[in-house]
Computed example of a mutant assay.
Amino acid sequence: MGAEAEERPHGAAVVVDGFGLKGPRGWAFREVSFRAGPGTLVAIEGPSGSGRTCLLLALTGRMKAKEGTAEVGGLPLPKKMAAVRRISALGHVPGVSELDPAFTVAEHLGERAMLQRRFDGSVRTFLRRPSERRAAARARIDEAVAAAGLDLDALPKGERTSVRDLERLEALRLSIALALIGRPRLLAVDDADLKLSDADRAEAWALLRSVADSGTTVVAVCSEAPEDALRITTLAAAATATAPAPATEARAEDSEDAEDAAGAPGDGDKAGRGDKAGRGDKAGRGDTAGSAGTAGSTDKADKPAGDLTEDTTEEGAADALAETGRA
């Protein structure tokens, strides 16, 4: 009973105050502030290039912020980036944690369970009999697959279905199942509603909502957030964080052209093919509280005429992502 209690998921509270990340050509995001309790569904919405993915990666300890503070599960960022990576996991993040199209569903699940046991298992795990270890791994896989709503029997070839043959929603469910094998306290998903029909989009949000309801804090990037999520809106000049009901907003401060430090990615813990994500164990449930936040506005008035470096949010986000391996 005690061992099961230790492994039971409990979510990570997220507290962000004046958070900002700057690349060589400008701010990817700036002055982002919000609070989310354990088990909250946080939706980061905005147009492509507005720093959404950079914010997602910074909150999971995979990119280093340049200003402001944040805490995930009581762990301060950017000071404890490695520790945050251990309690968080990435679902679908293009260019960072992608599924291998040549792998089958079973191969992805088996590899992730093996790596989870190898890198995150306790010493007691290695003292178990091989049959017990296999049974424990299978139990974790079944638990994660069920939580992600992935019906293996409904796939064209069952577990032997290749990733390239999966529909977009099925691939999203698989990526979430892989992340949940590590029982993270925080789950991060990029492009949660990309290329989905209205019906599939509703299913995707229902899935993420159910993961949050089970106790794991969920942060998802999207083009349009659902009304019941804690909404963080990023724009080319500003971003606002709103609770599910009333919205508050704050203006972004002008960026300083003299600053040119790049946002460096954190050292990712590898959790499976294409996933540099750290995994966590434990996850739970709590209340949410949203406040205001803003992301990068710029001031080009003082730039010399010959300076071709523009301090824009879109370019800053592109540069910061390029440093994580996503051009």
Rank of each mutant, 00 (worst) to 15 (best):
F19C: 13
F19Y: 15
F19Q: 13
K22M: 13
K22H: 14
G23C: 05
G23A: 07
G23R: 07
R25T: 08
G26V: 08
A28I: 06
A28D: 11
F29C: 03
R30C: 09
E31L: 03
V32H: 15
V32F: 12
F34E: 15
A36F: 13
P38N: 11
P38V: 12
V42N: 10
V42L: 06
V42M: 03
A43N: 06
I44V: 14
I44P: 02
E45D: 05
P47D: 09
G49K: 01
G49L: 01
R52F: 02
R52T: 06
R52M: 04
T53R: 04
T53C: 06
T53W: 01
C54F: 11
L55F: 07
L55Q: 11
L55A: 10
A58V: 11
L59Y: 03
L59E: 00
T60N: 13
R62V: 15
M63D: 15
M63A: 15
M63E: 06
K64D: 15
K64I: 15
K64M: 15
A65V: 15
K66L: 15
E67Y: 13
T69N: 03
A70C: 11
A70T: 10
A70E: 12
E71S: 06
V72R: 03
G74E: 06
L77P: 10
K79L: 15
K80V: 02
K80S: 08
M81G: 08
M81Y: 11
A82F: 10
A83W: 04
A83P: 05
V84N: 06
V84G: 09
R85K: 13
R86N: 02
R86G: 00
I87Q: 00
S88W: 12
S88I: 03
S88M: 05
S88D: 05
S88F: 02
A89F: 12
A89N: 06
A89I: 12
L90E: 01
H92I: 06
V93Y: 00
P94R: 01
P94K: 00
G95T: 00
V96F: 00
S97A: 07
S97M: 01
L99Y: 01
L99I: 00
L99D: 00
D100E: 03
P101F: 01
P101E: 05
A102H: 12
F103C: 02
V105F: 08
A106I: 11
E107M: 09
E107I: 08
H108V: 04
L109C: 10
L109H: 02
L109V: 07
G110F: 10
G110I: 09
E111Y: 05
E111C: 11
R112I: 05
M114W: 12
L115C: 06
R117S: 14
R117M: 13
R118S: 06
D120C: 04
G121R: 02
S122N: 08
S122P: 08
V123M: 04
F126K: 14
F126R: 05
L127G: 14
L127M: 09
S131W: 07
R134C: 01
A135F: 03
A135C: 03
A136C: 00
A137H: 01
R138E: 10
R138V: 04
A139L: 02
